[in-house]
Design a protein around this nucleic acid. Sequence first.
RNA 1: GCCCCCGUAGUUCAAUGGAUAGAACACCAGCCUUCUAAGCUGGAUAUCUAGGUUCGAUUCCUAGCGGGGGCACCA
Length: 563
Amino acid sequence: MKEKIKKIIQKAVNELQEKEKWEDFKMSDVVVDYAKNEKFGDYSSNVAMISAGKIGKNPMKIAEKIVALLNFYIADKKLSSMFFFENKKGEKKKVFEKIEAVKPGYINFYLSNDYWQNLVAVINEQKEKFGNSEIGKGKKVLLEFISANPTGPIHLGNGRGGPLGDTLANVLIKAGWQAEREFYVNDYGGQIEALGHSILKDKKAQYRGEYIDELAIDFDFEKITNEGARAVGEKAAEKVLKNLIQPTCEKLGVNFDRWFSEKKELHNQNKVDEIIRFLKEKKFTYEERGALWYESSRFGDDKDRVLVKKDGEKTYIATDLAYHKNKLERGFDKLINIQGADHHKEAEVVRNFVEKILGQSNKLGIILNQFVRIIKDGREVKMSKRAGTYFALDDLLNEVGKDAVRFIFLSYSPNTHINFDINLAKERSEKNPVYYVQYAHARINSILVKSQIKNSGIQINSQSKISDLKLDLLIHPKELSLIKELNKFPELVEEISESYEAHRLPQYAIKLADKFHSFYASCRVLNEENSELSAARLNLVNAVKIVLEEVLKLMGVEAPKKM
RNA sequence: GCCCCCGUAGUUCAAUGGAUAGAACACCAGCCUUCUAAGCUGGAUAUCUAGGUUCGAUUCCUAGCGGGGGCACCA
């Protein structure tokens, strides 16, 4: 609808530009959005205020001219496909109740009750397909997230990316994309050796904590002391992945399509050597102090990066570049990386490589999550695998549950540092917004179950019944307000698929639940004395159920039938 | 010193340059003989400071103050 209104405005503006010789202005700056307040209608646009400067007229005057022209179109039945629609009963109805220019120069659009009421029928017909979009049709996207090192449990820094990545994948799929979830397993390099030393508990041991002791139990020490730290580390890393990381991801409700092994799929296949050769050929490298350097400073980096150390080992940067080249070679139209903000420099290097050297601009989207600070008993819990103090994602899942973890983490913008108070989260677990949303679903379910038990002839519309259904009875302000909230869902899906602002999802869920609870309090659904109204309201309630379930599904949160 | 993120209600978070800055928790006052009170209705409380751009700034720019993170031949 936003797009449709924008088109209508564009049409009017074009005509006025010709007639009144208005200067041209950037239509892309024009915003059509939901009205901030119900008294300003349903949608509003700032077109007059944006263009006022260029045109050199009072914005209010411009708005009035546009509105007059739009109203003329309606009266004259011009562009009737824009201003009229056919409802599910096959009747022709007008889309807009009123279009008006207001104060500083806003143009406000009021949609007709017919339009809103028909939306209820539309949702019930489309069911879980409501909100599906085709803007990603035919395109493939790869989301890489969590990618915690296999040297210990997933901590919350990495864990934060879990709900976000998984949910974004869900949203993108709903928006028509073909999405894959990938976990990059750093099973190679110095950290693996350090893990080995830690198991052996020799002088180079770095990691501590209970899990190290538990891992060590499985090793035959007589045997492994001869194997060397690296071999021990590799075995231990496999166990960490299998026993700690994967179960936690499962508990979080995240299913990866692929666990990409750095060792097996890059190093063993000589992919890292290839990238080094490639960069050498392109003359982006030089040798100095026995090491091979990559001239990342040519793209604004504050210094160059080492690709091959003087001991011959390749650095993580080299591997990372190889990894991203590999991702692109797999034919994705878009790559989304979700990583901790401590990697922002590295992210820049990778981005420059992808865009400037591989020439693939706009393909790589990087979301940097800021840190999660854990506060327990009024004190910050310092996170360090090396010191053995950390609060793992698994612990949190055990304490507050998957739904609350996902919902809470999703609620934050990635740019925000999270201050996560464990005590509060536990204390509030029963007053958590996630329960507020789930409760709405449970209430809906309860109504629907009761309506069937009573068998009072009140039914959710089936195709054959649509002609009898009196959706025009839905005129209560709470009913309309609820329908208007449902209407926002498809646009929300599309917008998130482009902006990646997944935190708008929990916000929307709360808002929708809020409107439902409020409706519930003032509009009784089941009423045998007025079965027509009951039927209409049941259809509305079912539409809410459909959308609520979709939203929860996108977030990976359960929709309980009873609470 | 350089780079990135943040500074909004008592607290934790929202707000594509727009019309009365939204929620949640906590607080105050009401509401259960009818579909789940894990609910509803009402109330009080906020944009770090100083400049600038703009018809209009929480949002953009500059400086300052405060918090977090990064500046390895670790990953």
